[in-house]
Simulated assay, not measured.
Amino acid sequence: MRFYVVLFLLISILTVAYDYSIVVQTEPFLNVYLDGVFVGATDFEGKLTIPLRNAGKFEITINGSWIVPSTVFATVYYPGENFVVVPVRRAGALRIFSNIYPVEVYCQDMYLGTVQSVKDTVYAPEGTVNITFRSPGCVSIEKSLSFSYRKETSVNITFHEEELNVDLKIEPETFSPNGDWYQDETTFYIYLSKSASLEINIYDSSGQKVFHWEGQGKPGTNQLTWNGENTPDGTYRAELLAQTEGEEYTAVSYVTIDRSNYTYTKEITIGIVGAVGAALLLLLLFF
């Protein structure tokens, strides 16, 4: 008897789970993506029904020829059809003549795409808009350009290499590698405006080097973790050296090791996990 009750409940759950759907309403024959996954194209009326397994919040993106990709978020609470209207913005094509590729293209902080060569084009909104061009390690370029629907606009840009800018932050500035599972290590956050070779040296109060690391850094944020292994408690000087072919930059910060603050995080975590495991075992035994 219990078996049939469980089977009935499972069938009911599965039946309800597939009773949700989103009906996308937009222009005809456009590609539709749900949470980044292609789910089909709209019909001649501009509609597409997307079956769902459950309620929740979903990202819906439409894409197609001569339109700017549009994304909306839809929250589904109840079973049945949930209608979502996705507006369409007509577009023209942009071809880029540049001294450096690839080129990332943005329109008022909206990412339009990346071109790898002059053969590629991206769609830009119809009308006069501000376009930003970016390439790794170079100064961004902004231009005001006009686009007509289903027409191509060309632009010639020249990138100039960006100066090397570096920043170093250490978080936490004081850490305690005492095995209590709380702040047992620290992280070096390194910002680079462009690619550079990196070198980190850590010195104690007497100038003795206690840690050394070398690597290649990329534009943006780079991270390095240090666990202070075999290093006594104390405050240490961290020196970062960033180098390119013609530039060199040094940043300095300080980090402290203090093992005296033991938090018992490990013991508490193990106790909680053990209690949850025991409770689950009891549930399995009785049900």
Rank of each mutant, 00 (worst) to 15 (best):
L198M: 00
I200D: 00
I200N: 00
I200H: 02
N201Y: 04
N201K: 14
N201E: 04
I202V: 15
I202P: 02
Y203T: 03
Y203W: 01
Y203I: 00
Y203H: 03
D204H: 01
D204C: 02
D204K: 00
D204T: 08
S205K: 01
S205T: 14
S205C: 01
S205E: 14
S205P: 02
S206C: 04
S206G: 07
S206A: 08
G207V: 03
G207C: 01
G207S: 03
G207R: 03
G207N: 01
G207Q: 04
Q208S: 12
Q208E: 15
Q208A: 08
K209T: 02
K209C: 07
K209H: 05
K209E: 09
K209D: 05
K209G: 00
V210P: 09
V210Y: 11
V210T: 11
V210R: 12
H212C: 06
H212M: 15
H212L: 15
H212F: 15
W213P: 03
W213H: 12
W213S: 05
W213A: 07
W213D: 06
E214W: 08
E214N: 10
G215R: 09
G215Q: 10
G215K: 10
Q216A: 10
Q216F: 14
Q216H: 11
G217D: 14
G217A: 14
K218M: 12
K218S: 12
P219D: 10
P219G: 07
G220F: 12
G220A: 15
G220K: 11
T221W: 13
N222V: 13
N222A: 14
N222Q: 13
Q223C: 11
Q223N: 11
L224S: 14
T225M: 11
T225D: 14
T225W: 12
T225H: 13
W226S: 12
W226L: 09
W226K: 09
N227T: 11
N227I: 08
N227F: 01
N227H: 05
N227P: 05
G228A: 09
G228Q: 06
G228C: 06
E229C: 04
E229S: 08
E229W: 01
E229V: 05
N230H: 10
N230G: 08
T231M: 00
T231G: 12
P232C: 08
P232T: 13
P232A: 11
P232V: 10
P232K: 12
D233R: 07
G234K: 01
G234Q: 07
T235N: 05
T235Q: 00
T235C: 03
T235M: 02
T235A: 06
Y236H: 08
Y236Q: 07
Y236D: 09
R237Q: 13
R237G: 08
R237W: 10
A238V: 14
A238R: 09
A238I: 08
E239Y: 09
L240P: 04
L240F: 05
L240S: 03
L241K: 08
